[in-house]
């Protein structure tokens, strides 16, 4: 086991970092997807006071690198709210703001693929806007866009590494700390790569099983 001696010696510390990565990913998705559902609705809204602000937000964020969003949020928020934020909540909020725009655009495409007639069928049975949106538009769009949404979720998971720039002791950050002490870069970062590879691969296999459901024809 000499090959992985430094990893084994520091395993609890490294896995603690991995756990932070998993938590950050989960919060980013739990916030980013629901917000993305609303952002997507805003992007197809006929109400100008909804459409323009949402579109501005989406275009702004999507044209800024994620690392800058994380930085900017971490350094600017204390000026606005008057006290510094912890890296973890700051990273979670940055990721939610960032990912919601990507999920929003994926879902906008999904909403636009739903036939106008299916929505009108809902209205013609007396359902209101919220009901047709909730029971018809959103479920159809999510089912159709599931493969893209899973891909985006995997990207989010990989992107969480960027939170190291604000000192969040996540997986990669902790590995760097260990490497500074142990000087075993190849095995340490090799271990990080393998763990990412395995978890991402499992997620994509699971997502392909979801796609089988699409045989129902939506």
């Amino acid at each position: 086991m000499r090959m992985f001696d430094a990893v084994i010696r520091n395993l609890p510390f490294l896995m603690g970092g991995f756990w932070i990565t998993v938590k950050l990913t989960s919060f980013a998705l739990l916030g980013g997807i629901p917000l993305g559902i609303l952002v997507g609705l805003g992007r197809i809204s006929k109400k100008k006071w909804v459409y323009y602000p949402v579109t501005f937000y989406v275009n702004l964020i999507r044209n800024i690198p994620l690392i800058l969003v994380i930085f900017w949020f971490y350094f600017v928020m204390p000026i606005i709210i008057g006290h510094p934020l912890d890296p973890f909540p700051s990273a979670v909020i940055s990721f939610i703001i960032f990912e919601a725009t990507y999920f929003g655009e994926i879902l906008r495409a999904g909403y636009q693929s739903v036939s106008k007639g299916q929505i009108e069928a809902g209205y013609s049975t007396g359902l209101n806007y919220i009901q047709t949106t909730r029971y018809i538009l959103i479920p159809i769009a999510i089912r159709r866009m599931l493969p893209s949404m899973i891909t985006q979720s995997i990207v989010t998971y990989q992107d969480t590494c960027l939170a190291f720039v604000i000192g969040l002791p996540e997986f990669v950050r902790r590995t760097t700390i260990v490497d500074n002490l142990e000087v075993r870069s190849i095995q340490l970062f090799g271990f990080v790569a393998i763990l990412f590879l395995i978890t991402c691969y499992i997620s994509s296999v699971v997502s392909r099983r979801f796609e089988v459901k699409r045989e129902r024809g939506y």
């Binding site: 299916q118 009108e120 809902g122 049975t125 007396g126 029971y135 479920p139 159809i140």
Partner: peptide
């Protein structure tokens, strides 16, 4: 109202298509 292209909700069974509005409205 009945449409030319049926416009059933594709993610619901026939029964769910029929019961949606009576249950929600």
């Amino acid at each position: 109202m009945v449409f030319q292209r049926f416009e059933l909700y594709p993610h619901m069974t026939a029964l769910q298509n029929i019961t949606l509005a009576p249950m929600k409205v």
